[in-house]
Amino acid sequence: MESMTPPPVRRIAADRRATIAPQPLPTNGSHAQAPPAGPVTRGSSRPERQRVPAIERMRTEQLVLAYGGKPAVKGVSLPVRQGEVLALIGPSGCGKTTLLRSLNRLTELTPTATRDGKIFLDGQDIDELEVTQLRRRISMVFQQPNPFPMSVFDNVAYALREQGKKRPGKRELMPHVEEALRRAGLWDEVSADLSHPALRLSGGQQQRLCIARALAARPEVLLLDEPCSALDPKSTEIIEDLIVRLREEVAVVIVTHNLQQAYRVADHVAFMYLGDLVEYGPTEQVFHAPTQHRTREYVGGAFG
């Protein structure tokens, strides 16, 4: 894997997208409702997926983040690869969100937050990049769906309209908006009325709209902070499939509380505990043969 062509290969599957987009939901039985008794259901039979070549896009080195001097992330070094989904797991308050937000420098919006250590995007220190440029390349979807109080179309077109030096017209934007909505699996539901107010969509639709909004700007890395924590199982399923499909074109980092979800979607898993990175490895290994005691306890508890 390490020997693969290094950057500047940005988007590997740019021309394959159209065929991926409108795929119907997988209908195999394992996706049906989970019986309440067993904690692991569809997760236990992790769907075999085609291997995608993985390239390292980002890397953190000895990353330390603190709020008002109190460390929340303590020296984490991690790679983020395109072609894979990286899941951050760990009990609440262990610094997952903080770590994720630091990747596109959103932590800088918190006045008390401080940082040490380095973050690289394609080998370049992100401190040297212009911050809006950086955030265009590394987009984020939040835990609470936060569509703007505008129409569906305006939401998806938002980044395209506001990022560039001049404002593209509606006609110009339309193909991009449609493509983003298709990739987020929302097109069929909203195509009839794109001027529908985004805040009147259901929670699951809102979250997919937020993903579409992030995708419309063609990011290279997509950060997802517990994107399904406020959603129903059906919407969760749609978003999980979406994440698995997306990983070919963008590097995906997902924070999740839900171990089964991490097991289902991730290729690599990082387990954090009280700000420390305890274990990082391929999903199968972290869940079935963890090297660390704490990982075993945390993961083992969830899998019974």
């Binding site: 919006l109 950086l134 987009s139 936060n146 703007f148 980044a159 506001e162 990022q163 909004r213 992030a214």
Partner: peptide, 8 residues
């Protein structure tokens, strides 16, 4: 923050 995260 959502807007900022989109690189605006």
């Amino acid at each position: 923050e959502g807007a900022a995260a989109l690189g605006v």
